[in-house]
């Protein structure tokens, strides 16, 4: 049996099912990260000696990562536009750039984490580092999740472009929504840990 409303919007919701599905998932993600942001606030307001981010972190790496994620959000939109225009090459180039930027993000995170460990800074060192590693680590796992899905769509998943172009466009729109959310979370992580 086929999954219904993968292409046409469902009459009562006005949405194709995957779009409603990804938004429900993102709502649960708001709660997941929300709990951690709440923990961050509670830890920070209760600690009169809460350190400056610059004591442990170099904002220049995070600034570069912010540029990477914002740019990758745009290239996902360009990849989606490529599918809508029936231009597979444009889709592949832009999703390829997205992948490069996402890998770039992880490489920078790896450099940052290893520098911390090298200096003897671990999640157990203090509350600041504990919540920093928890939140940026969870966010990093979301980047890894996005990369896996992008690899599928640039590789074997792209076959659908030829068999059902609209459904494929919907899939790219859906993964795009997820990716923009990952970008959105980072937009808050960057200032609260590195700058403020």
């Amino acid at each position: 049996m086929d999954i219904p409303y993968t292409v046409q919007p469902r009459p009562d919701t006005g949405l194709y099912n995957a779009k409603l599905g990804i938004w429900l998932f993102l709502a649960s993600e708001v709660m997941l990260f929300g709990g951690l942001f709440s923990a961050y606030v509670l830890l920070r307001v209760n600690d009169p000696n809460w350190p400056e981010g610059s004591q442990y972190l170099d904002y220049r790496w995070a600034f570069l990562n912010t540029i990477f994620l914002i740019t990758s959000s745009v290239t996902v939109i360009l990849a989606w536009a490529g599918v809508l225009e029936g231009n597979l090459k444009k889709f592949r180039i832009n999703l390829g750039i997205t992948l490069l930027l996402s890998f770039g993000f992880l490489v920078i995170k790896y450099i940052e984490y290893t520098a911390k460990f090298h200096h003897g800074y671990f999640p157990s060192t203090n509350n600041f580092l504990g919540i920093y590693f928890t939140m940026t680590g969870l966010h990093g796992l979301h980047v890894v999740g996005g990369i896996i899905v992008f690899l599928y769509f640039i590789g074997p998943g792209a076959k659908m472009f030829h068999t059902n172009q609209q459904r494929f466009a919907n899939r790219i729109e859906t993964v795009g929504l997820y990716w923009h959310f990952v970008d959105l979370v980072w937009i808050f992580l960057f200032p609260i840990y590195y700058l403020l």
Binding site: G14, L15, L24, V30, M31, S38, V41, L42
Partner: peptide, 23 residues
């Protein structure tokens, strides 16, 4: 569409409660 806003408003309410109650 309206349905997505309804879902997000619910999330926002719970998020604010989660942020506000511990404080």
């Amino acid at each position: 569409k309206q349905l997505i806003f309804s879902v997000l408003i619910l999330s926002a309410v719970f998020f604010l409660a989660m942020l506000g109650l511990p404080l």
